[in-house]
Design a protein around this nucleic acid. Sequence first.
DNA 1: TTGACAACCACACAAATGTGTAGTATAAAG
DNA 2: CTTTATACTACACATTTGTGTGGTTGTCAA
Lengths: 199, 199
Amino acid sequence: MPINKLTSKQKAVLKYIYDSIRYHKLPPTVREIAQHFKFKSTGTVRDYLKILVREGVIRITANKSRAIELVYENLFAIPILGRVQAGLPTLAVEEIEDYLNMDSLIFSETDTFALRIKGESMINAGIFSGDLVLVQKQNIAQTDEIVVAVIGEEATVKRLKKKGARYFLEPANPHYQDIIVDEQVNIIGKVISVIRRFH
Amino acid sequence: MPINKLTSKQKAVLKYIYDSIRYHKLPPTVREIAQHFKFKSTGTVRDYLKILVREGVIRITANKSRAIELVYENLFAIPILGRVQAGLPTLAVEEIEDYLNMDSLIFSETDTFALRIKGESMINAGIFSGDLVLVQKQNIAQTDEIVVAVIGEEATVKRLKKKGARYFLEPANPHYQDIIVDEQVNIIGKVISVIRRFH
DNA sequence: TTGACAACCACACAAATGTGTAGTATAAAG
DNA sequence: CTTTATACTACACATTTGTGTGGTTGTCAA
């Protein structure tokens, strides 16, 4: 926290640790720090590390290689800002509401694939032509879920609805018509997210 | 190349490496991996690492501790299907049109943040309340781009328009009104993509 | 002057860590 | 049947790495 209390040399060491994590994605070893600053002894580095720990800007774990941790750093995910103040966002701790993780898809048990939307049939659900939808492979779905169905050779994205005992696929666009689910219709997945890019 | 080619055990090892970096902020050592999976030999771990390197999802540096690096380009690659046939997609090579690189959604780790949308002012642009927008930090933008602007304490997402010599922020919803860009309005970024998740 | 502290050096030791060789068992593919 | 690949075990060796002890020099404040 009190980075101002650090001397310029201590700040330089801290910055090197920071850069090492940021660009090499790995905290440095004691000897890597020594080499960078042309220190001829690892003891010098340990003096610096002790000071940085004492000042509360890093944490280290005993007997563990590269176990230097920056106290106020969150490098991994993309911050989701809850509150934005005037000027360019500083990504200050107070502003960060949460972190966006892209990883939940990757290690999911079932396979995931993406499909590019063609047509306007789901515009009222905010799914536009050209959007990508991420689809979780499954051949059943629940009512009101947006599903991917194959009819003949065509894949279509619609909302699954039920009226009485009959299931049908409902577009989110009054200009399109419902599709009754019968033997010709195969549900192949559930839409789990929509991604749109502005080139 | 993509993660689908990995066996479930290989995925488990990859996930452990991923989690280790994510939560302990440090890639694991060979022996840490062995211990976690109760492997009685480090050789087992090395077999897995070799496979993961071969499949292009990690990189390792010789003789360097904890030097396991995730190759995000391949890690976050989800197949985009161009053609879908009846039945569950087989993810056959012929069907794959391209790969969606989740990592490429992010402009650069430092200059990108996410913002959760509140309100209905952009529904005609397919941006709904609750959606996340990825924002590239910048204080200028071009006409017709969707921007994030701060007015007082409030952040707002609108489309930047120009009429004559005057700039204004245009909502994508007829129930909302234009906002004239003046000294009170600060543009802090450009929306580069929209992400919506269905729980 | 004394003492505290930053900022170094030298060197050695033990622990942690990556690497290499040599195996076994099993299942799928040719 | 043979080959190939995955999925392990066992063990030893070399390097990397963290740690500890004991110094020196200079500065600044009490």
